[in-house]
Design a protein around this nucleic acid. Structure first.
Lengths: 238, 238
DNA sequence: TGACAATGACTGACCAGTCAGTCAATATTA
DNA sequence: TAATATTGACTGACTGGTCAGTCATTGTCA
C-alpha cells in the first residue's frame, strides 16, 4: 500500500485553468475588469490567496492536517506550490490561520443582535435552526469536526476555539436561559448551570451528519424541536 | 519545522528492558513463572502483542493515524519494528483492528442485562453514570474522539462503529424510553423518535473532557442529572 | 527596464515496510 | 542426562517512495 489508502477520494475540481492564452481576445475594455479578467496585481493576489484558502480548507477537512499534501492544495487552487509560501509561513501556521479565518463568520453570528421580540423559545429555536442549516449541513460543520479531531494536537487552536466560540456561545446561551427563567418560560432553574445541555443536540447533529448521515439520515431540526419541548414544555398547536 | 511540530509530546515509558542479562539470577523456580519472568514462547508472544496494542493505542490517540510513527510504537512497546509486522499486516489494518478491539468492552456493556428493578430514570441514570465514569473520563473517551476524527477517512471503522455501537445503543435507549412512556414516567412521547437526545449530554461530556477540561472542568454526572430532570421532571428530594 | 510575482525542479528529512541474519527455546539423539 | 540439531520469533539496517520547504529561473506589471 502506498497510494491507495483508506482515504476517501477527494474529487478536486481543477480550479480555473491557467491564464487565458496570452494574446487572445481583448474583448473587454482595459479597465472595466468584470468577473473574469482580474485587473491589477493586488487584486489578483487577493484572488489567489482566496483560492488557496478555499482549496486548503477542502483538503484539510477531507484528510486532516498531517495527511494533507501541499502539492494537492496547490493543484486544487490552480497555483504552484511556491505560491503558497508567498502567503503562509508554513503548513502549520497555514492550518491555524485557516481555522481562525473560517471561524470568524460563526463568531459573528454569536454577536448578532438577538431578535428580542417573541418568546425565548422562539429565539433559541430561530438560533438553532440557523445553526443547523448553516453549520450542521455545510462545510462549517466539518470544521467543527476538524477542531475536535486536531484540537488535542493543536492546543493553540483548541484554546482559540474555546475562547472565541465556546465560552462566548455558552455565555450567550446562559443569558438566554436566565431570561427564560425570569419570564417563567423555563421551569428548570438548574439549566442555567449547564447551558451545554441546550446546545448538545445541535452538536450531536453536526457529528452525526459527517459520520452517519449515509447510514441513517437525521432530521436535525425536527430533533431539536423535540428537545425544546423537553425544556419549554409541549408546544400548543403550531 | 521537522521534529518539533505542534504535537503535544507523549512521554513514552520505555517499556520493560530487554531480556535480563543471560546467566543472571535463577531466583524463581523454572516452572512457577510469576509476573516477571515470561515462561514459554507462546506466553511471551501474547505479552508482546499486548504491549504493542497498548503502545499503539496511546500513540494513535495522541497523534492520530497518519502522524503516528510505527518506530515510536515499537520503541514504546519495547519491541523492534519488525515485530509489529509479525502481528499485524500493515499500519492501516493495525489501526482498524485496534479500534475494533477497544470497542468490544463498550459493546459488552450495551448487552449487559438492564437492571430491570427500579424506575426507568434510575436505569438511565445508572447507565449514564457508568458511561461517564468509564468512558468520558478514561482513554475510552479518547477512542470515541479518535473515531470522530478518523471516521470519515476510514469508512470501514465508521460503519463498524455505527453497526456495533451506535445503532444498538440507540435501539436499547429507545426501548428504555418506550418503557418509560408506558409506565408514565416520561410524558414526551416524541422522545422515542430521537433517542439521541437522551445520550447527547454524555457525548458532549466526552468531547469536552478531551478538548476543554483544562479551560473549564465539567462535572459531567451533575450535568446529566439536570438533563434527566428535564425529561423525567424535577427529582423529589434525594 | 526595474521590481516584484510566480513557478516548479530540486533537496533532504522522514517513514512504512522488508528481509537476511541472530539466538533462545525446543526437539532429537546418543 | 548431556550434547547437538532445528526452529522460528525477533531484530534493526536498509530501501524506495513521499513530501515540506527552498530558490534559481522565468514571467508580468507599472
Amino acid at each position: 500500500m502506498s497510494k491507495t489508502g483508506p482515504i476517501t477520494e477527494v474529487p478536486a475540481k481543477p480550479a480555473r485553468s491557467r491564464r487565458v492564452a496570452s494574446g487572445a481576445v481583448a474583448a473587454n475594455s482595459p479597465k472595466a475588469a468584470a468577473a473574469k479578467a482580474p485587473a491589477n496585481r493586488a487584486e489578483r493576489a487577493v484572488e489567489r490567496r482566496a483560492a488557496i484558502v478555499e482549496a486548503a480548507l477542502d483538503e484539510f477537512i477531507a484528510r486532516g492536517f498531517t495527511a494533507t499534501r501541499l502539492d494537492d492544495v496547490a493543484k486544487r487552487a490552480g497555483v504552484a506550490k511556491g505560491t503558497i509560501y508567498l502567503h503562509f509561513k508554513d503548513k502549520e501556521s497555514m492550518f491555524e490561520e485557516l481555522i481562525r479565518t473560517a471561524l470568524v463568520p460563526m463568531i459573528g453570528r454569536l454577536h448578532a443582535p438577538p431578535p428580542s421580540g417573541g418568546s425565548v423559545r422562539d429565539m433559541v429555536e430561530g438560533f438553532a435552526e440557523n445553526f443547523i442549516r448553516e453549520v450542521a449541513s455545510t462545510r462549517r460543520g466539518d470544521i467543527v469536526r476538524l477542531i475536535v479531531a486536531e484540537g488535542p494536537r493543536f492546543p493553540a487552536i483548541a484554546d482559540f476555539y474555546y475562547r472565541e466560540v465556546v465560552s462566548r456561545g455558552l455565555a450567550g446561551m446562559r443569558a438566554l436561559i436566565e431570561l427564560g427563567i425570569a419570564r417563567g418560560e423555563i421551569r428548570h432553574t438548574n439549566l442555567a448551570r449547564f447551558p451545554q445541555i441546550m446546545v448538545a443536540p445541535a452538536l450531536i447533529a453536526v457529528i452525526w451528519q459527517s459520520l452517519f448521515a449515509k447510514h441513517a439520515p437525521l432530521d436535525a431540526i425536527d430533533m431539536f424541536r423535540v428537545h425544546l419541548d423537553l425544556i419549554f414544555g409541549e408546544r400548543r398547536t403550531a
